[in-house]
Write a protein that binds this DNA or RNA. Structure first.
Lengths: 160, 160
DNA sequence: TTAGATGCAAACTATTTGCATTTTC
DNA sequence: GAAAATGCAAATAGTTTGCATCTAA
């Protein structure tokens, strides 16, 4: 899914629902699509380069609106602010490098079935789920040279 | 792992590290082990039934200490406060019922391998991960009678 | 023209910090 | 007795809300 296509999709949805296409709003959507999994602060900083009077509250309101419209997915990582994904605005697994902070969407083949099976075992009606993996990315591996998190740490208990 | 055993393990660790065994601290550990995945507020309320002058800051400090000692695992669910698990103080999958708020630890057979395989595919050094499933629990299913979240909602996009 | 959006400031929630007083070891 | 913990209050951070002013439709 490309950023340009998503921009049009989101604009169409806003139009269809009779929300106004203000310059700030469009700039916020573009920032959401340009930056990778940005926080509200990051969007705010970006938007202010084009619209210096934009308020932080406006960014919060717009991001919340897009989230309610199903056009921006909120990713809560704990410790600080939420991140948003407007390119793939639905739950999906992430790879997160704690060294550089990079967040990447990943495919985990077979995961959906595994979770659905677990849901059945528990006799639950599955609504949604989240799967996130923290890992030192290749770039940070070479930068570090040595392993920051030696064996025997949290790693071995990665999952039950 | 039983609560009584964990209580002794935690007390032993505190002793070994020369942290003091104050009555408040022990009450906080007991509350952590008695309540299921409690928040700091819930621990605070519980502890104040025995020690009415206990401060919220003390609960925060103790829970943070236990977390740093690896004796309490922090679960960040977004929207509000962190939950803590001192019985299984390491990452593991959860079942969360959004209706009643119940949080249960679950086993997902084969998950560790799946995540490790994904880590290799990404050439990452896996540090930790989280897997959580939101599902209407059996009790709330019967209470509701009908499905709160019809097919075609967020459910179908449970994972990539 | 007018309902809706912006921008600014105040309010709120969860959490952290500082410090005088109290308590464990 | 000394180092550490408590309890209280003030500070912080992220986010939400209220409202007068402005603007897209």
């Amino acid at each position: 899914m490309s950023a340009e296509l998503r921009l049009n999709q989101i604009i169409d949805k806003l139009k269809a629902r009779h929300f106004r296409l203000t310059p700030q709003r469009i700039a916020i959507v573009k920032a959401l699509l340009t930056l990778s999994h940005p926080t509200v602060q990051q969007i705010y900083t970006e938007v202010r380069s084009s619209f210096p009077t934009t308020g932080l509250g406006t960014v919060y309101k717009t991001v919340t609106l897009l989230n309610e419209l199903g056009e921006a997915f909120e990713l809560t990582l704990g410790g600080g602010s939420s991140h948003y994904d407007a390119i793939e605005p639905y739950p999906h697994p992430h790879f997160i490098c704690p060294q550089c902070g990079e967040i990447v969407n990943v495919e985990v083949p077979g995961l959906a079935e595994l979770l659905e099976r677990t849901g059945s075992t528990m006799n639950g009606w599955v609504i949604t789920s989240r799967v996130d993996i923290w890992a030192t990315c290749p770039r940070c591996q070479s930068a570090a040279g040595i392993r920051k998190y030696p064996e025997g740490g949290a790693m071995e208990q990665t999952s039950a």
